[in-house]
Design a binder for these strands. Sequence first.
RNA 1: GCCCGGAUGGUGGAACGGUAGACACGCAGGACUUAAAAUCCUGUGGCCAUAAAGGCUGUGCGGGUUCAAGUCCCGCUCCGGGUACCA
Length: 888
Amino acid sequence: MDYNFKAIEKKWQDYWEKNKTFKTHDDLENPKKCYVLDMFPYPSGTGLHVGHPEGYTATDIYSRFKRMKGFNVLHPMGWDAFGLPAEQYAIQTGTHPAITTNKNCDTFRRQIKSLGLSYDWDREINTTDPKYFKWTQWIFIRLFNTWFDENLQKGRPVNELTIPDEIKSLGDKEVRKYIDSRRLAYYENAQVWYCSSCRIVCANEEVLNDGSHEKCGNQVEKKYLKQWMLRIPLYAERLLKGIDSLNWPEGIKEMQRNWIGRSTGAEVDFRIEGLDESLTVFTTRPDTLFGATYMVIAPEHHLVDKITTDSYRKQVEKYVKQSALKSDLDRTDLAKEKTGVFTGRYALNPVNNSRIPIWIADYVLTGYGTGAIMAVPAHDTRDFEFAEKFNLPIICIQDPDVSDAEQRARILEGNECWTEDGIYINSSDPVTGIDINGLNKEAGIEKITKWLESRNLGRAKVNYKLRDWLFSRQRYWGEPFPVVHWDDGEISVIDEKELPLELPALEKYIPGESGESPLANAGEWLNVVDANGRRGRRETNTMPQWAGSCWYYLRFIDPRNDQVIFDSEKEKYWMPVDLYIGGAEHAVLHLLYSRFWHKVLFDLGIVSTDEPYQRLFNQGMILAFAYENQTGAKVPADQVTEKNGKYYNTQTGEELKQIVAKMSKSLKNVVNPDDVTEKYGADSLRLYEMFMGPLDVMKPWDERNVKGVFNFISRTYRFFAETGNISTGEEDIEILKGLHRTIRKVEDDIENLKFNTAISEMMIFLNLVYKKGKVTKETARNFILILSAFAPHLGEELWQILGHDHSLAYEPWPEVNPEYLKVDIIEYPVSFNGKMRFKIELPAEMNKDDIEKAVLADARSEKWTGGSKPLKVVVVPGKIVNVVVKPS
RNA sequence: GCCCGGAUGGUGGAACGGUAGACACGCAGGACUUAAAAUCCUGUGGCCAUAAAGGCUGUGCGGGUUCAAGUCCCGCUCCGGGUACCA
């Protein structure tokens, strides 16, 4: 009667595969649908680690539960398989990335299948499959052919774009330019990070804080290269508003809001003395205009040349050059020490026409606002630091709301910066007529903005941190852009009938020098001639890895459709995703990009929902124990031995401290799920992943604890597989109560994704079963059904032993009978002054007064009341009694 | 710096403002066994104490609200993650 998990698990995995037990049918008539999605993995060469199955098990339990609750469940899996490692391997060995990729996918598929996850494998997709990326390219064409109508706050096809007559009159080329300037996808010179050692352009997230490339460690440099960009900021307001309606963790929602970074303020125009130009700044504090004592423009600002006077030109040019060379490392390292240079030029403050100097400094960024600021050192800490360093005037214009008299004096004298609220002083001008003295911040902002608008000197403005999205990579292993660059300068997308545009075979995958993609060597593939004999060259950049993952949830709906991206009736049925689980590291970028594409597709009528992911949950990272010595040096786990709860270095014998750290090769503490399934079985792995702790927190893997759930599974098997333990006749009332409480707890916990407590409840029930020694077949049935969501192999096996000849996957979830949840006797804890002293059993329906009487009548009360009347008695029916007595 | 999390026994962790430590690991003791493993049973926060009881104390630290605080509020400490001068 031993629990032979190897044979059992193999048997049922084969059964599910053979019978296609988890094939999802597009039963569009069934109103109960549930789309449960995992963030699909990048199939790396190292295979699965125990972090992957955490989320997969959670969604699997949820899916199995929903199926048993009568839902039509869509639960697919696929591969986000483009990526640099396969390409680098190709460079080294000449092996085509597709070969490496498919091999890795095979490993991942085998490993995932060995966990008994209930995916519909007929829907498996792979982002590198031309049949898939055909539609990624198709979406790109949509983005290219869409503009954003600010008035309707909606993306629309470019052929609905009205061309102003004055543009039309300038000819076709200008019309083309006008349209191109509105497209959601555009092609432009952009500053990118370039790694000369790998010869590739890197995404920001691949550049480490010290300015080195995360893959090779070499310093990256900045470079201007022609790039595809997507105008995601146009959707900033929609993306921001949409967040509110989502059932996502608050922290993630907040991170997205911060990333979008909406701020309200005003644009203000400053005339430049001696030039017929004005300098526009964005400020959130137009109310502090009277405190503006200088201006700063970014070194890359387009007016730098014009503004700089001859006598300062040399210094300025030197400074601009220097800051261009600076990596982010230098900028942050020197963050405390601000640098800058005077241009020799002055601007005029619109509120009082005072002359204020224009400086250049790299603490002002080109990419945000207008790339120029008005500096108000008295009320902005960065401006304050800069002004102190360069001895620029600091004028306090706000009497601060502060109680400390000394601090107030320092602020008024301009010796300390004040960024909070206060009452304006020195904020009026008889000539221009503006006066905000005596007002506070809110009123001041409003008044001065109105004044600026009425004089056409400025305007209220909303600004976002969100920037255009750099959407091209100089790599081979990505989706080719369906784009042709024509000799006459026109850029066009290819006809949809020509999709997919597949990658050409190459002999070598080495990128070109100066940052060109390997596709630049693609020979004939590159050349295109149109019907009129016009020559063109294909785009050599490829799309970033985000592209395929931005919309894969849509393809799962109809993955084999080669006519359309997906059937829209099916899309209407399945969308939105009801539950999406993955790591928090994708909190911002993947989810934001994906929402952006979805909204564009929604505007174009291609999808039926405004948001793709209704409910999101992030699993916490799984960590592992690691060891360090007195000096904090890490010792690889294979050089550590345990003795009486202490840890020692096997080489040196020194005592080590156990810490919790990320799993890493160097620490030798990576846990491979294959090893765990080999030793304890897939059901134990699944159960332990869930039992470790709450799904959303980080937790350390501790193999010793796998034994706990393994014991539980073995005990379950030993009990229910032994027919002698199954009784006939009436079920024991305690068993019934326990069973129904367990069903209720488990179903509630699954809905709330609290799998750890669901499992412990089942353990409690099993302990009760062992105590009683026998259960009825009905009880066994019900318990096996709820357990099967967690440990499906064991569930199926016991189900069969009970005499069933088909899978339990679609059996109805056991009904809770509320009769058995009722309690007639409550054991009230009785506390005196908040301290629990004794317990008393009272009928559940007893009212407050009677409870009070019963408690005070109890002999044990006298010890605490001293026989006198208590000051107060708090009775919470069903919960607790608290007697307040005079403290002795 | 800023933003977001977190801190509960030897360990992983439970706990609608209502009995702190469920469940599990580990450990200790017992049963079974020639013995061990496996299994089953019992105990297990700390301190004091006992014939049986019982008492004190305890959720990172310091205050507060409340009949009652791990939970709510204010002020810290430490740890983890994100971000980098966002005007």
